[in-house]
Computed example of a mutant assay.
Amino acid sequence: MDITVIGEGSADAAPDVMRLHAGVEVRGRSAAEAFAGARAAAARLAEALRGAGVAAHDLRTTELSLGPEYQAYPKVSAYRAAQGVEAVVRDLARADHVIDTVAGVGEEARLNGIVFEVSDPDAVLATARQEAFRQAAVKAAQYAGLAGRPLGRVVSITEERHGPPVPMARTMAAEAHDTVSPGRQAIGVTVQVGYAFGD
């Protein structure tokens, strides 16, 4: 006979990477004009991001589109071309500067959002696992006591990592010139631990 309990643990850390989703959008009278304009604007954007300190290998194209816009179907009023880019910013002290750089590219520029990440979550996960396992052990000991049985060895462990990191309130104030704050992120795990009853 054995007993199975569930423990939950979480730990938080300050993100150290920002993923910036940006791009360019151009409208033209012809498909060729719109596409050429978007490609030229995208080249300017990539050059500006590299100039702002983003490494070339941290730039990734995420969208490339071209299509008509209708005034009243099937009458085409213009053509729209867009190209998107994801920029990985590894120095968060430069986050605001990189964002401002995108805005400075011109009227074609688009800012589509940012995501903060913990680049190496292993240490945070280790702390969360310790808390989850400790909680499971406390529950198992209590149930064994209620059943009047000694708690034996662990016979099974199953782990489930929680979903995407959840942003938390930042614990330290941002610098006065910063307008973008990474806050903190919680990473959690749930463990299901099976124990045998002792003799």
Rank of each mutant, 00 (worst) to 15 (best):
residue 42 A to H: 07
residue 42 A to M: 10
residue 42 A to L: 04
residue 42 A to W: 02
residue 42 A to R: 05
residue 43 A to M: 02
residue 43 A to Y: 01
residue 43 A to N: 03
residue 43 A to K: 03
residue 43 A to P: 00
residue 43 A to I: 05
residue 43 A to L: 03
residue 43 A to F: 00
residue 43 A to D: 09
residue 44 R to L: 06
residue 44 R to T: 02
residue 44 R to P: 01
residue 44 R to N: 04
residue 44 R to F: 01
residue 45 L to R: 02
residue 45 L to V: 00
residue 45 L to D: 00
residue 45 L to Q: 00
residue 46 A to R: 14
residue 46 A to M: 10
residue 46 A to P: 03
residue 46 A to D: 09
residue 46 A to I: 06
residue 49 L to R: 00
residue 49 L to D: 00
residue 49 L to H: 01
residue 49 L to V: 00
residue 49 L to N: 01
residue 49 L to Q: 00
residue 50 R to E: 15
residue 51 G to F: 04
residue 51 G to W: 01
residue 51 G to I: 07
residue 51 G to C: 05
residue 52 A to S: 12
residue 52 A to Q: 05
residue 52 A to F: 08
residue 52 A to P: 08
residue 52 A to C: 07
residue 53 G to S: 10
residue 53 G to W: 04
residue 53 G to R: 01
residue 54 V to I: 11
residue 54 V to T: 04
residue 54 V to D: 07
residue 54 V to H: 02
residue 55 A to V: 06
residue 55 A to M: 01
residue 55 A to L: 10
residue 56 A to K: 08
residue 56 A to E: 15
residue 56 A to P: 10
residue 56 A to R: 11
residue 56 A to T: 11
residue 57 H to I: 14
residue 57 H to E: 15
residue 57 H to W: 03
residue 58 D to Q: 09
residue 58 D to M: 02
residue 58 D to G: 06
residue 58 D to V: 02
residue 58 D to P: 02
residue 58 D to I: 02
residue 59 L to H: 03
residue 59 L to R: 05
residue 59 L to W: 04
residue 60 R to V: 08
residue 60 R to D: 11
residue 60 R to L: 15
residue 60 R to G: 09
residue 60 R to P: 02
residue 60 R to I: 03
residue 60 R to S: 15
residue 60 R to N: 11
residue 61 T to L: 15
residue 62 T to G: 05
residue 62 T to H: 10
residue 63 E to C: 13
residue 63 E to F: 04
residue 63 E to D: 15
residue 63 E to R: 15
residue 64 L to E: 15
residue 64 L to W: 13
residue 64 L to C: 13
residue 64 L to A: 14
residue 65 S to Y: 09
residue 65 S to H: 10
residue 66 L to D: 03
residue 66 L to K: 07
residue 66 L to C: 07
residue 66 L to I: 13
residue 66 L to N: 04
residue 67 G to N: 11
residue 67 G to S: 09
residue 68 P to M: 10
residue 69 E to Q: 14
residue 69 E to V: 12
residue 69 E to G: 12
residue 69 E to M: 14
residue 69 E to D: 15
residue 69 E to H: 12
residue 70 Y to G: 03
residue 70 Y to P: 07
residue 70 Y to Q: 07
residue 71 Q to P: 01
residue 71 Q to N: 11
residue 71 Q to Y: 13
residue 72 A to L: 13
residue 72 A to C: 06
residue 72 A to R: 15
residue 72 A to M: 12
residue 73 Y to D: 08
residue 73 Y to N: 12
residue 73 Y to F: 15
residue 73 Y to H: 09
residue 74 P to W: 12
residue 74 P to Q: 05
residue 74 P to I: 06
residue 74 P to G: 08
residue 74 P to K: 06
residue 75 K to H: 13
residue 75 K to D: 13
residue 76 V to Y: 04
residue 76 V to G: 05
residue 76 V to R: 08
residue 76 V to Q: 07
residue 76 V to D: 10
